[in-house]
Simulated scan of single mutants.
Amino acid sequence: MKFIPLCFLISLLVLFNTKPLQGAEPEPEPVVDIEGNPLQPEVGYYAWPLWGNSGGITLGHTRNKTCPLDVILDPKSIGVALFFTPPVDLGFIPTLTDLTISIRILSPCSQYSKIWKTSKVGSELWFVSTGGTAGDILSKFKIVNLEGDIYSFKYCPTKVYGTPCKSVGTFVDTDGTKVLAIGEGIDEPYYVRFHKSSTFPLRKHQDMSIV
């Protein structure tokens, strides 16, 4: 009986071992709405706050009241629909994946795109603004699952070093406006549930204006 060298056996084990290495990133799961259905690319969804039954995401003037508009919370309305575009069409919106997020609403800043981007307003503070470009580093956001159908947004571009990696929370501007932001002064993520906009009829009291 011939003996096979130990180094050859180890090489074979490494070659045919298909088990993922420990520490590898988990496979992304579908983001689901409040009805348990996976979010779909290029379909509008409201992002309703977890805490409270009113207020939604929209666009508004902050800082110097100039363009582009920033992403804010409006306590007087249910907000406007968000649209998500993944880098690869899987038939659903995945968690933990770089996404392009846009708010397609008429505004006085029509020369700017409605794609989310980070905009630096302080040494360690960034507002979530608009005027972004699909695929650009500043416009790569992720959706992170807390549990069940509860999610938050995160700015953490995949495999891009030297950029912030932080959860999106809220920052109260000087005039009292709550702006989606990351960095200094952000205590916790802004948790949301998603609702497909086409299944929610517009109410008479819904305010679709820019704040």
Rank of each mutant, 00 (worst) to 15 (best):
P28A: 05
E27R: 10
E124S: 15
I103W: 03
L15K: 11
A81T: 14
G176V: 09
R203K: 11
T85F: 05
L146G: 11
P189K: 04
T58N: 02
L146N: 13
C7Q: 14
F127D: 02
A24M: 09
A81F: 06
G55Y: 05
T18Y: 11
Y45P: 02
G148Q: 06
N17Y: 08
F8L: 15
L73V: 15
Q111H: 12
G132S: 05
Q22E: 13
H195Y: 10
E124I: 10
H195C: 10
T158K: 07
P94K: 04
K140N: 07
L202F: 13
H195Q: 15
G44K: 08
L99V: 09
G183L: 03
E42P: 05
Y161W: 11
G23C: 05
F127K: 02
L9C: 11
D207F: 08
F8H: 14
T85Y: 07
K159M: 12
L21D: 11
P41D: 05
S110N: 14
L12H: 09
I72H: 00
D89H: 09
S11Y: 10
I210L: 08
S139E: 03
D74V: 08
E188T: 15
W116R: 03
T95W: 02
E29I: 14
P94D: 00
G148P: 06
G162S: 05
I101N: 00
P49I: 07
V211S: 13
L59Y: 02
G56N: 02
L13Y: 10
G91L: 05
V43E: 08
G44E: 09
Y161G: 09
N145G: 08
P5H: 12
K166D: 07
V128R: 00
K159R: 13
G148S: 07
V179Y: 00
T158E: 08
S123M: 11
D187P: 04
G79H: 02
S167P: 03
L15A: 15
A181Q: 00
P38M: 01
V168Q: 02
I115S: 01
I150M: 05
L69E: 04
C67L: 07
G60W: 03
P86C: 03
E124P: 02
L125D: 04
C109F: 03
T177G: 01
I10R: 10
K76Q: 13
T163P: 02
S107P: 06
N37F: 14
A81C: 12
E188M: 09
T100Y: 03
V144N: 01
G148A: 06
V144L: 07
T163N: 04
E25R: 11
I115R: 00
G122C: 04
I34V: 14
S139F: 02
G135D: 03
Y161H: 11
F200W: 12
G135H: 00
I57A: 00
I4N: 05
C156S: 09
K76N: 13
I4G: 06
V43F: 01
T66I: 09
S129F: 01
T199C: 05
P20G: 08
V192R: 01
L99A: 00
E184Q: 14
G176L: 02
S167V: 10
V128K: 01
Y46F: 14
A24Y: 06
N64E: 15
L12Y: 09
S11H: 10
